[in-house]
Write a protein that binds this DNA or RNA. Sequence first.
RNA 1: GCCGAUGUAGCUCAGUGGUAGAGCACUCGAUUCGUAAUCGAGCGGUCAGGGGUUCAAAUCCCCUCAUCGGCUCCA
Length: 642
Amino acid sequence: MSIAIAPIAKIETLPPDIIVKSNPKKTLYIQLTCMVKQPMTTAEPQDMIQLPRTSESDQLKRIRHTASHVMAMAVQRLFPKAQVTIGPWTETGFYYDFDNPEPFSEKDLKAIKKEMDKIIKQKQPVIREEVSREEAQRRIKELGEPYKLEILDDIKTEPITIYHLGETWWDLCAGPHIENTSELNPKAIDIESVAGAYWRGDEKRQQLQRIYATAWETPEQLKEYKRRKAEALKRDHRKLGKELGLFVFSDPVGPGLPLWTPKGTIIRSTLEDFLKQEQIKRGYLPVVTPHIARVDLFKVSGHWQNYQEDMFPMMAETPEAAAKERGFVLKPMNCPFHIQIYKNELRSYRDLPMRLAEFGTVYRYEQSGELGGLTRVRGFTVDDSHLFVTPDQLDGEFLSVVDLILEVFNSLQLKQFKARLSFRDPESDKYIGSEDAWNKAENAIRRAVQTLEMDYFEAPGEAAFYGPKLDFIFRDVLDREWQLGTVQVDYNLPERFELEYTAEDGSRQRPVMIHRAPFGSLERLIGILIEQYAGDFPLWLAPIQMRLMSVNDEFLGYAKDVAAQLRAVGVRAEVDTSGDRLGKMIRNAEKGKIPVMAILGGKEVESNSLSIRTRAQGELGAIPVAEVVEKMKGAIANRTDF
RNA sequence: GCCGAUGUAGCUCAGUGGUAGAGCACUCGAUUCGUAAUCGAGCGGUCAGGGGUUCAAAUCCCCUCAUCGGCUCCA
């Protein structure tokens, strides 16, 4: 079979992520992300000052390596009991992890910065030395720093390089460094924050104190970096969501359980309607399933065994039932429900592919420290669909799902993302199913991204326990990465639930499942969208699309009349009846980020027109009402601007 | 879950042991106004919740809850 894939609109991937994580498991991930096929550039606004990225600037690497040593030296001068561990650069700065009996306070950070400035002024030379493994071990033992011994064990090559800072302080380091601390500018360095971090990223091990800091070539770069950070904070979806009244969290309801206000709900349902339309075009079938089910359902799927800790506790009618694990649970996934619908009838190959789709709300008991805004919540809605396909249909269906997802991103102007092939970790035993099934599934995904000529990277160990995934990763304003869309190939759940269809020759065959969600989570998507648009939703998504303002209340009747005409054709229009002066009404509409404003007075009433002002373009002058109605209708339908 | 910080009116915030404040929002009154803030008055608080110290606690101490920054986790 062949499938038509629409040409993919220009897609920019995020630049490779080279932030070094303390978790050794993630080292591989870091290296692989560097291998994105074509290095892409970030869409930088026309800023006066270009900020270099550490990964692209040898000089910044040197500055940050040395600055981290200066910081570690300062800490050990002020806190003699502090042990040093690792201190890598990141894309925007560097950090250093210390084992200190007491956590560092804000005051300590200031003192550390002062001490750093002192060290820099002392013009300490940075001297590279190569030593043998034995010599390195001897010196570490002399110092009494056990963490360094562990680090040494990880360094596989010889000789071992040591960097000295002045006469007494040194650290294991691969470099490169600058030659003298006098090359650092204290005014281009800043200590930012302190946080706990586990040694080697392992929560069972010692928790260290991580100090985050940043260092630049010039004070101007530091200033610009801080300006951008402050700028980014303004578009934080938690801040904008509150200001624009899109959603709220309420203590009595509980953490991680967002309440959607009317304005936020309009955005939600508009997104839902948009995707439902796309799905109808592609032969999806709508289903609805309940929020709870017997725990047994999730025992068959394996979720109970794998994720019991992360599910809301089971509801049982009696203590006896609870003891026997007989009860109901809030669903953490929709797939077992859709599987039951599939199983309700004996399916023929003629029924396949069968694409069951639902906006299904799931509940997961996320760790308290993980909750945050809309990006990580305990109750969220997945634009979930499960495709039951014959093995022959797998490739074609997979491609058409990815095509849909890219189409969705394109419509939402989500242009920057990374495509991650989340495969199994060959070392781990948490995965169910046969080697053969996994290979088939992983190859299907690889074939798809290669057919589509997408930029992608492979991430071993990131697969779901039942199958590999193609994940679409986006960044928030604080540069944190979040998974939105996902497509998963699954041979295992059909096996566990004993799914079948009757083939052409009359034999019983097992279907393959594709799990897919373009949005991933409606909550997370809207969080990302708010930040992406900085609250300025495109016209078709804007909760209020037009506000009409009368220069005085003499013409309110006309305003209400026109608003009714607009609403009659599906435009979300409203009238400002506050009685405020025009300037104030405009200010309020601008602050509310309403895309189109219509001002009217005697002149407009006389000519049956509206004076249009858009947020994007400002004053457009008087336009006849009929034309405004048509333009609004057209722009909303075509998802364009007024 | 772990480390740290924070929690005062609907919102943004001031108030370091001695009578709870400001701006905006809201309500009322006046103003009828042409492209980002008209003027005036009024309403509004168990200072997150609970316990303790003190003659006296928003303020000091303890516990709980929530939020924020990290770490860990993420079907």
